[in-house]
Design a protein around this nucleic acid. Structure first.
Lengths: 275, 275
DNA sequence: TCACGGTAGTGAACGCCGTTTACTCACGAA
DNA sequence: TTCGTGAGTAAACGGCGTTCACTACCGTGA
């Protein structure tokens, strides 16, 4: 479906896999970028159901069939948008982490959690695209090393890496392998083999990681999707409350967030927008 | 949009708000039921995007415009389906609770949590309709005492009631009002006034309830939507692990679920299906 | 210089979709 | 028996994803 490889010009300039892109290729890439940006803009401004091929093309001064030069289908285009959004989210996360002093693991963890939540709230519709109920056609047909899949993996790795760094620097308490539910233990082992090749980790670390991740993302999803509106107008205190529970599990010290309009490192924590 | 009140026949038989329904009204109600059932069947069998007015009508041997006699729009029909599904879920929950001895609060709580999770897995697409990212047109235009809204409230009340019963029978530890984050405290107070009229509850109980609910539904949503697939094939052990953490918070004793194919009270725990 | 092959893009068409409109027809009450 | 009302239909409108035949155009190789 993706364009077949054409003859590359000026291969003598291509040192180790950086082939000089032909003019056509550059134009093509620019168009792909414009398409995904347009799609995202429509998603943000008008909602997911407004992201139609015809609307995207209209906005770009084209006709819908032209988009089939770049994506095999509407679904494929959306998958690409998913990948793009994941990349942005990952960038925002890393920016949020860089705003915290290098060795301050307490701050790093809290910053990651809060940056994730803040990004989700600032990009509700994009968040819903990534973490909402999976649309039927979007996830099932997994072909090759999918762009979206790859960026989703990178996103997950960002969190996991931070977590492992946290544990390696000052190990928190973790259940011994033999204290883990056998059914879960085997799954954790499999994940360790496939996802973290060569890492020599206690399975308990992975278990605690998953527990934390479930609580973090579970809470954020509920908040963003409005499933706490029945009781709360502003769910942030509940989120912070969860962080106060999570911190001791990881041997961290909780500290409240920097006030949004004060000094310090808090606030937006980097956005990663391309627009 | 709903049919205006017509003259009721034989009002002399109508004792206190149970007017004898005319033949027409009975037929109408039957048709409404058939429409929602058909919509649900299509949702379950072919996915959310297949639930179109034309498909529903086709399946019923009608034409699409006829459905406008019963619902003002596609969205309104879907809202009704949401209400119907909520009612089913509530029924399943109550059935699950009735399978546990009356006074066994430990068992009641675990049964509620497990029944909820099992229902979600057995009805993934319906669950996604209720608890996924809100579709734009579905939630915003809140008119009157919406059928879906009402049944959602009843569902929430089922859990809340169980929770309050749990606390009243054997009170677990709960933070004092003055130990609750001020921003959160005021919101909890408001929820207590509006949602639980006249109840004389410590705000801490509501806080713990919301914490538990966030963990429970957050975990279930992540599982059902496949957002743990990156690490786990069978997330049930993780769920049980969460229950082991939740139980002591509520002063309960955790006990593992009854094996699916054994004796006892476990297993399907009632389904509430109408089909 | 020129012809050619591949690429970007168009317009028309197909079969879906939600929704509106004008209409028919049968039932039930007066 | 008449007549209003409610259920249902056919036709149409505009929008959707997708396909197909077609046309420009650009960069290359002879």
């Amino acid at each position: 479906m993706a364009a077949g490889r054409r003859r590359e010009p000026r291969e003598q300039d291509a040192r180790r896999g950086v082939p000089v892109k032909s003019r056509r290729d550059r134009l093509r890439e620019a168009t792909v970028r414009e398409i995904t940006q347009t799609a995202r803009r429509i998603l943000v401004e008008e909602g997911p159901e407004a992201v139609t091929l015809r609307a995207i093309a209209r906005e770009m001064g084209m006709t819908a069939p032209a988009l089939y030069r770049y994506f095999g289908s509407h679904h494929e285009l959306l998958r690409h948008v998913v990948g793009d959004v994941f990349a942005d989210l990952t960038a925002a996360l890393k920016a949020g982490l860089h705003a915290v002093p290098e060795g301050d693991m307490d701050g790093q963890f809290l910053a990651a959690a809060r940056t994730f939540r803040q990004w989700a709230f600032a990009h509700r519709r994009e968040y819903a695209l990534l973490f909402g109920a999976p649309m039927p056609g979007l996830t099932d047909h997994r072909e090759q090393a999918d762009f979206a899949e790859e960026n989703a993996r990178r996103f997950g790795l960002t969190f996991l890496t931070l977590f492992l760094e946290l544990w390696s620097k000052c190990p928190f308490e973790v259940p011994a392998d033999e204290d883990i539910d056998p059914g879960l233990r085997e799954q954790l082992r499999r994940y360790r083999e496939l996802g973290l090749e060569g890492a020599d980790l206690p399975l308990g670390v992975i278990q605690v990681f998953l527990q934390c991740w479930v609580r973090l993302q579970g809470a954020v999803s509920l908040e963003v999707f409005g499933h706490l509106d029945f009781a709360l107008d502003d769910p942030e205190p509940m989120f912070e409350l969860m962080l106060t529970e999570l911190a001791p599990v990881l041997g961290l010290e909780y500290s409240p967030p920097a006030p949004p309009a004060g000094g310090g490192t808090g606030d937006g924590a980097g956005d990663g927008e391309t627009r």
